[in-house]
Design a protein around this nucleic acid. Structure first.
Lengths: 233, 233
DNA sequence: ATAATTTATTGATTTATATCAAGAAGAAGT
DNA sequence: ACTTCTTCTTGATATAAATCAATAAATTAT
């Protein structure tokens, strides 16, 4: 049996309330790759990820996916929807197999009297704002190279855990582009690739540099810049 | 004198509290184009826009601006910051001249006991999530043409009120690109341009179509598609 | 162990949009 | 009304990343 108190949002509720919510929630099992809801769907339920990993993505007119977010249990999905009668802005799909609890919005609204609960709700909403804000930064400011550099610094292990086409999907770039960026980073001796998808970072400063300037500095660049300087004289 | 009760967030607070906050807030006047805060700054104050119009933008490594948001008084800026000790994700700059009140986070935290206040806070946070979510959609899914089509449908008047380079900035595209899109839409008889930057929409359905397919269907397209079909045979 | 399948890499081409450059149209100042 | 400055338009070129196509490497199934 699952434990609602493990979910940050409900952590401060008394056992009575927790049990009430639990008894009124619907728990569903999902197989790998199954859809929890589609972009554009509306719902009166808060979705709570109890087991597994899900991804949220939008679909472009061309049919490609833009990943918004990916997270592991335990987590709440789209708590803002309780307050805005708006369709989901993204499709939610299981990456693994897993389990989801559905809690009717009424039970959320009911508990807003509880100061601790609304505080937790505020916290989880601000956390979601941070995530969205980071996503905006990633998608509007960073180049492909900067995205990869950022991920290398923040989470090298993920490259060992996931396939490169999955990493590419998370970063919203094609596997080809990712592969080319790896090649470039290896050539510039910024990273080293060992067996089993294990990456060793050789030069952190250069990676920070890539994030700041949106590109890998390479020798060809130096020559181009040198030429420009010559022309100016 | 300004009225805090006009701000949705404070609308449900009792006069006592309102006055306390008011007496402890700092009000500043700004000239056109002045900066309220920079991306990366941190602050212990909630900013309340009392008069004027501001824009929030990020700056790319190349130095170009990505507009995140633009809004008119009265409004609260970055209320999520009260709960997350994080630097501002964007620069805030006045588009007009205006006035801002600064309220220390303490006064916000203090009032969280008030159920109505935390409800309003939750509302304003969810509203910000909606805005961010729309921004993500605009920047990741829509093509330039779709962005323009969306704005034409939702807010034609803005094209009369603002200069085209300002519109282009709001949509995060260059004036050249905007101009070319206008040309295309005129050619396809979807819009008509009258004197004084006044745009008349002739064909709403086609605009919806542009949003859905991310491109203006034109005659050249038809011929290309026709050729492709011939080749297949 | 070998075949089949999936995943990753490489090269060539395309695409959307930005950038650069120049001219045209409009608005503002004298 | 004429000059000056700003905004808008048009064309040519550049750029980043996607797409398409082919092969290579790795994993899985037989």
């Amino acid at each position: 049996m699952y434990n609602l108190a493990d979910i940050q949002l409900f952590s401060k509720l008394s056992d009575n309330y927790i049990n009430e919510i639990k008894q009124n929630s619907i728990v569903r099992k999902y197989t790998k790759d199954s859809i929890i809801f589609y972009e554009g769907d509306t719902s009166d339920y808060l979705y709570i990820l109890l087991e597994g990993t899900i991804k949220l993505y939008k679909t472009t007119p061309k049919g490609t996916q833009i990943q918004i977010n990916r997270f592991d249990a335990p987590a709440t999905i789209g708590e803002y929807a309780c307050f805005e009668a708006q369709p989901f802005p993204a499709t939610c799909e299981f990456v693994t197999e897993g389990k989801v609890a559905m809690v009717h919005f009424d039970y959320i609204h009911k508990n807003l009297d509880d100061r601790q609960f609304s505080l937790e709700l505020i916290k989880s909403l601000t956390a979601k704002i941070m995530v969205l804000s980071a996503l905006v930064h990633k998608e509007t400011i960073y180049s492909s190279e900067a995205k990869v550099a950022k991920m290398l610094i923040e989470n090298v292990e993920i490259f060992t855990k996931l396939k490169y086409n999955e990493i590419a999907a998370i970063l919203n770039l094609t596997p080809e582009t990712l592969s080319r960026i790896f090649k470039k980073l290896k050539k510039e001796n910024i990273i080293e690739m060992k067996t089993g998808h294990h990456i060793k970072i050789l030069d952190y400063d250069s990676l920070e540099d890539v994030i700041e300037n949106n590109k890998v500095k390479n020798c060809t660049d130096c020559i181009t810049e040198f030429k420009k300087k010559l022309d100016k004289k």
